[in-house]
Design a protein around this nucleic acid. Structure first.
Length: 628
DNA sequence: GAGTTTGAAACT
DNA sequence: CAGTTTCAAACTC
């Protein structure tokens, strides 16, 4: 017998939805409360997610697209359109050109074919202006059809529609939580004519469905990710999420993995690389990079802020772009993380012009934004060419320079090897740290900062990393109690950690199972199990269910779960770096990374322990470098 | 908030 | 590749 929920979940496509509208089951669904209906989301989501079709052209032609244009254009409802344009132009004109030339001189101008980006820009412009609008209109119509004429919202329909739609978002966490909030909070959003989320989502979906092929063809990676969320939110969704529901957005998502420790304090934020990297496993994978291809990058000033705030701040920030910001505005990371919602990178660079890896923003692949306190910053959209050139240069030196520093692989415990397998963290620092004095107990240590244990890759001295020591030893009792109050010693427990949906963070990461909050309603649990749709049915599912503490974690969990599936299937495939057909190889003893051709893995650190490959889960990191 | 410490990044 | 310098974040007071 089909339960109503199940029926909902079967409504996987707009077509089926339409059919379902007339069915008694559908009516019954409509009578259900929105909250109940949301139970179907995971399944739908899973299916939807898996429906992403064409394998991504992950590493193809990541031509940078006009950030400026898309960014400004995408201030859809802003009345400051002209202002934006003027602002950017003025800025580019007054500030940009001179300094840009300087910077470009420094970074070998010849590396930047100026026409490089022209074509993609056109394509994107066309897309921005055309297809999405059409799709959006259609979808709005669809939602209108779905929307009952009476004052009583047809929640079942709406939810099934929106859930399905919203699951085309790659930003599960934001989208999901936003949707849930909105759908469950009130009908005003819908009835009152705002329908922002639904419309947004609808647009996204229609755009995805109808223009998928077009997107695939026309969209390539952005060179530089926008502030926050670039990775996960499809462009269309980004637009609308940013504008209509960004208050729901978890701003830390979209951060470079460097930001894990910050964002992790929210405890419901999975780091973006965990997501994108895992999802992307291998060049054949279907999601992140695909989504990246399909969807554009977020505008830096909107995401992570309240929409209104973003709109308010945009003119200001764009006007201020490129201008030094008073150090008084400086906010330290600790403060940022305290804000929870605003843990986007902020730098304080004074000499690097934010064009070196010293700059956290630059290193994270995001532009600097207003809250940054940098001086002479060139890491702005208006200096896109400079940024691109610099990145290219840096990448030429170290192809993984912009890759996430922490490799968060669900297989890492198994894969990494004997000495580190005991350590609980399901991730390792890509290159390892080199700490001398901090004992890997402070955030000077990149491993510690990333919330991961040290590994054999580390050259640290006196390692006492609370997440796992270099020598593989477990924490001492005292230490451990301090950190988490729990000793993780067994393989099972390690596995629990492995599937810990929580981001890396000292406290919760090592929180024992018993101490984890179990949701009063365990609806999440079956939902979570749905994430293993088609999975190998490993113990991870069970663990997963147990660990599901929080609705806000759901989306992240799903990501990880899917990752598991992918890893199962593709664990033998090395993840390709953004560079063409090359394996990124991390030398345990070298800071620099080298590239290795596909036939030499056995001599590399990729293989350890019985020949299993150590997978470098390089996420879909949109290389700035156009590859030809 | 200023100064110090630290280690990554960059440079030689 | 090793040593040195530069840099900015983290940290301390």
């Amino acid at each position: 017998m089909d339960t109503p929920q199940k029926s909902i979940t079967q409504i996987g496509t707009p077509v089926s939805k339409l059919k379902a509208e007339d069915s008694p089951v559908f009516n019954y669904i409509c009578s259900l409360s929105p909250i109940k209906s949301t139970k179907s989301i995971p399944i739908t989501h899973t299916l939807s997610s898996l429906n992403f079709t064409s394998p991504p052209s992950v590493f193809t032609s990541p031509h940078a697209v006009s950030h400026k244009e898309s960014r400004f254009r995408s201030q859809v409802n802003s009345s400051d359109h002209s202002k934006d344009g003027v602002g950017s132009n003025e800025e580019a004109g007054s500030i940009g050109e001179k300094g840009k030339e300087e910077a470009l001189t420094e970074i070998e101008q010849s590396q930047i074919p100026k026409n490089e980006c022209n074509t993609p820009r056109v394509a994107n412009d066309v897309r921005d202006n055309g297809c999405c609008e059409d799709g959006g209109m259609n979808l709005v119509k669809m939602c209108d059809n779905v929307k009952p004429k009476s004052d009583t919202p047809d929640w079942g329909t709406l939810i099934s529609a929106t859930t399905e739609l919203i699951y085309n978002l790659t930003s599960e966490s934001e989208a999901y939580s936003c949707l849930l909030k909105r759908t469950s909070n009130s009908g005003e959003h819908v009835r009152g004519g705002t329908m922002s989320t639904l419309e947004s989502v609808s647009k996204t979906n229609v755009a995805n469905n109808e223009n998928e092929s077009f997107d695939d063809l026309s969209i390539s990676h952005r060179g530089v990710r926008r502030r926050c969320l670039d990775f996960e939110i499809p462009r269309n969704s980004q637009q609308t999420l940013g504008e209509s529901s960004s208050s729901c957005v978890v701003p830390s998502i979209g951060l470079h993995l460097n930001a894990i420790p910050m964002s992790s304090k929210d405890n419901n934020v999975v780091n973006e690389y965990s997501f994108s990297g895992n999802i992307k496993v291998g060049s054949q994978s279907f999601t992140t990079s695909d989504l990246h291809s399909k969807h554009h990058i977020v505008r830096e000033n909107e995401i992570g802020k309240d929409a209104g705030q973003a709109l308010e701040e945009f003119p200001k920030s764009s006007a201020l772009e490129g201008l030094p910001i008073s150090p008084k505005k400086k906010r330290r990371k600790s403060e940022q993380s305290g804000e929870g919602e605003s843990s986007c990178k902020r730098c304080n660079c004074k000499k690097s012009k934010c064009l070196k890896l010293y700059c956290e923003c630059f290193a994270a692949g995001v532009y600097c934004i207003e809250p940054c306190s940098c001086i002479d910053c060139f890491n702005k959209s208006i200096h896109e060419d400079v940024v691109l050139a610099t990145r290219k240069q840096i990448e030429s030196r170290n192809p993984l320079a912009f890759a996430p520093k922490v490799i968060r692989s669900s297989d890492s415990i198994i894969e990494v090897g004997d000495d580190t397998s005991k350590t609980p963290a399901s991730a390792r620092h890509k290159r390892g740290c080199n700490c001398k004095k901090s004992n890997c107990l402070k955030k000077y240590c990149e491993c510690y900062q990333g919330g991961v244990g040290c590994s054999i890759n580390c050259r640290c001295e006196g390692c006492k990393n609370a997440f796992g020591r270099k020598d593989g030893s477990l924490f001492e009792q005292d230490e451990e109690n301090e950190v988490s109050g729990k000793i993780v010693t067994t393989k099972t427990q390690s596995n629990v950690e492995l599937f810990n949906p929580l981001p890396s963070t000292p406290m919760p990461l090592r929180q024992p199972l018993a101490q984890l909050p179990i949701p009063s309603n365990n609806r999440l649990l079956p939902s979570a199990s749905h994430f293993h749709h088609g999975a190998s049915g490993s113990s991870s599912s069970g663990i997963y269910n147990i660990r599901k503490p929080d609705m806000s974690l759901l989306s992240h969990s799903r990501i990880e779960a899917i990752t598991e599936d992918i890893d199962d299937d593709m664990s033998e495939n090395l993840i390709q770096s953004p560079l063409n057909n090359m394996k990124a190889v991390v030398s345990p003893n070298s800071k620099r990374v080298s590239l290795q051709h596909l036939d030499s893995s056995e001599t590399t650190p990729w293989r350890r322990n019985g020949g299993r490959k150590l997978i470098l889960s390089i996420p879909t990191f949109p290389s700035l470098t156009p590859h030809h």
